[in-house]
Design a binder for these strands. Structure first.
Lengths: 194, 194
DNA sequence: ACCTGAACACCGTTCAAGT
DNA sequence: ACCTGAACACCGTTCAAGT
């Protein structure tokens, strides 16, 4: 919690991701931003990858916290909780595109135990939201882990296509929210049309 | 069609993507692979990005060709055609992960008109497969462009999570094929359960 | 413990020539 | 037209010291 050099470096790396994307996060720029020599970061992290892994870990913990808050918040309406959590994830992706991709797509990120743990914990919190939603809506046909995977994959795919500039109205990808809406329409049709 | 230096450079870049991913595709390595000086590529392309854009354009044309062949092949069974095309896309992604990401996810790719055109043409061929499927299965509730977008987003999301090492059995993401299967189960439930 | 400064091997890209 | 070779400004990373 104190402003140790290590914490400053992590924050500087996250800020540079927001400002200029992956390519802007050079060890030298991070060091510069913290007023230390270009090589001081190596006293705190094994290298660039480990620094980015810590950034990712911190963000995964934030996401898990949001998902858990969504679970507690409106306990009476699981559908609203789930859609609210998805909206929050989408908002995070648009506000911090390079960080979103670091967490959910980046190839170069070599995951250590702490990162994998944080990522899985955030997924588990998401999975809980899906399970409650499924119980509320009552879809007996689908395994709830598979349903969580489907929603997760669709949401990620829509976000990634938008962030990469591959989404277009003519491709049926007006917005991430709309694709999510279409998915839920399909999921809930049997219940709505008995 | 002749083995011009330009064509050799494009092929070398594609091969390096397959062999070592994005980071392996340096202008110098591409030039080396073609037996020319490190700076000869600049006589054929404005820079690294333009070279990669041409690789992407070539692959988009290949994808479009596959989708169109799938349309013609089994004209009597639109569902089989669509699922076959998706399988081919998934196979391409697994065989050429770095090239798949170049086409569908890469941020650094600055798209010129030729690339955008090739990308859109391949989507249109995919969209046709979806439209025929929808007509065959008879889902009146969904706009067909939106349905194409949903399938596209889900498939891309599942592929991207797998390529990035983010997919796990515990996350309901056993395989891309399985996520696609779950999606189609959800889409077709009303028809199967009247 | 924490940091600095020089150095190395790489990059993309540019420039001035060469045939 | 097509190519080469030197050069520049950048990287990540390593090493030998400094306090």
């Amino acid at each position: 919690m104190a402003d140790t050099t290590r914490d400053l470096l992590v924050t500087a790396a996250a800020d540079l991701l927001d400002l200029g994307g992956q390519t802007a996060v050079t060890i030298r720029a991070v060091a510069d931003r913290c007023g230390v020599s270009h090589n001081a970061p190596y006293k705190h992290f094994a290298g660039r990858q480990e620094l980015l892994a810590v950034v990712a870990q911190r963000d995964f913990e934030q996401l898990r916290s949001w998902f858990e808050t969504a679970s507690l918040g409106s306990a009476g309406d699981a559908r609203t909780s789930l859609l609210g959590a998805l909206d929050q994830l989408i908002e995070y992706a648009h506000a911090h595109p390079a960080r979103y991709r670091l967490l959910f797509s980046d190839q170069s990120l070599t995951p250590d135990d702490a990162l994998v743990g944080a990522a899985f914990a955030s997924f588990q919190a998401f999975r809980l939201l899906v399970s409650r939603y499924q119980r509320e809506v009552g879809q007996a046909g689908l395994d709830d882990t598979e349903l969580a995977g489907l929603i997760y994959a669709t949401c990620h795919g829509a976000i990634d296509l938008h962030l990469g500039g591959r989404a277009a109205d003519a491709k049926g990808l007006v917005s991430v929210e709309n694709t999510i809406r279409v998915l839920f329409e399909a999921l809930e049709r049997p219940a709505q049309n008995p």
